[in-house]
Computed example of a mutant assay.
Amino acid sequence: MNDKIKANCQLFIENRDRIKGEFPWESAYMYPLCAALYTAKGRRANEEVLREAMDLLKARAGLFSNFRSTVKLAIAAMLDLSGNPEKTLNDGLKVYDKLKESFFSSAFLPIAAMTIAQMAEPYQYEEIVLRTRRIYERMKSNHFFLTSSEDSGFAAMLALSEKTDDALVEDMESCFAILSGMSMSSNAVQSLSHVLSISEAAADDKCRRTAALFDALKKAGYKYGKGYELPTLGVLALSEGDVEDIAGTMGEIDDFLSEQKGFGIFGIGAKQRLMYAGILAQSEYLDKDVMSAAAVSSTVSIIVAQQAAMCAAVAASAAAASASSSS
């Protein structure tokens, strides 16, 4: 493990412990998720500032709002990281209200609203929400029984893409058809196809790289999850890194995490741990030298794909937390 990755892993654990220490009664599944948000920005969590963001969220969002559901800690972290929590929350609530006019709410929708609020200008909100609904309806038309509330979050991310609706839908359908033979959950394959469709790369190429990365991990003795973890693997497949090298780095990170409290046998589980290894590996393989219009476009696509994958991680964490509390 090189020094950069090791420092990133150590920052991730420190952030997890800081956040857990300040909010000891939140779901154990949300601590690493929020730690990943801070670590991705190279930031050390400040407990006092995060608490202020949480208090602001509680003051502005209604008691029964999904902004204050299982994902509230993640939203508070997003507010802190924005640099302007009050404005970001105001904008996020505006987008959320617009999205609610077209969708039933879910753990995805507040996160999607926050992402849109930070990546788009206010004058764009209306069109992005309308486009979100158009894309979702086309998803539903193609996969009626697979498409549900979590896909509204992906539709919102796709609505931020510079690709046309037709191009996105054609690409995701091509990816879905190719990946369906990978013996994975159809629902998870659909989520993965959503993330991959954001990239301009040929469907065959990005699907082949995703499958190759999955197989490389398996060959090295690491069993990657076939559920909501898949979109994160897709983001790494969109990078230009060598597949074997990426798998090796993820293995090193997973080994490191397995020795940390909360990530072992009685922790969040091997599949989610390896997903976080993938998220931490992104800093090594997704750094791009933005020197040209093509590079800028590619970087924007990667950012949107990362946000879509993070939505999937939020949903996975929220679902796991709900299952844990009800058992």
Rank of each mutant, 00 (worst) to 15 (best):
L130I: 07
S141F: 07
H143G: 00
L146I: 02
M139L: 12
Y125M: 02
E127M: 01
D97C: 07
H143S: 01
E101P: 02
I111H: 14
S102P: 00
Y123M: 09
Y125C: 01
L109S: 11
A117G: 07
P110E: 09
K140L: 14
E101W: 06
I116E: 03
E126F: 05
T132Y: 02
E137D: 15
Y123H: 09
A117T: 04
F104P: 00
I128E: 05
R138Y: 04
V129H: 11
H143Y: 08
A113T: 13
M139W: 07
A112K: 06
A117H: 03
V129T: 13
S105E: 12
A117Y: 03
S148A: 14
M139S: 01
M119E: 15
Q118A: 10
A112T: 09
I116G: 05
A107R: 07
R134E: 12
R138D: 11
K140S: 10
Q118W: 00
T147N: 13
I111V: 15
V95P: 02
Q124H: 00
Y123L: 09
R133K: 08
F145R: 04
T115Y: 06
R138G: 03
A113D: 07
M119G: 05
R131N: 06
Y125W: 07
E137Y: 08
T147W: 07
R134A: 05
K94D: 05
S149P: 00
T132L: 02
M119P: 02
T132C: 10
K140H: 12
Y136H: 07
E127N: 00
S149G: 01
E126D: 07
M119C: 12
A120D: 11
A120G: 11
A113I: 12
D97I: 02
T147R: 09
M119L: 15
A113Q: 12
E121Q: 15
R134V: 06
F104L: 14
P110L: 10
Q124C: 00
K140R: 14
E137C: 13
L109P: 09
F145V: 01
F104A: 11
R138A: 11
S149Q: 15
A117R: 03
N142P: 00
R131F: 02
R131E: 03
S141N: 14
H143P: 00
Q118P: 04
F108N: 15
F108E: 15
L109V: 14
S105I: 11
S148Y: 05
L130Y: 10
T132F: 02
I116T: 06
P110N: 09
K94C: 01
F104T: 13
F145M: 04
A107M: 08
A120F: 12
A107P: 08
T115P: 03
A112V: 07
F108T: 15
A113V: 11
K100V: 13
S105Y: 09
M119T: 06
M114W: 08
Q118S: 12
M139C: 04
F108Y: 15
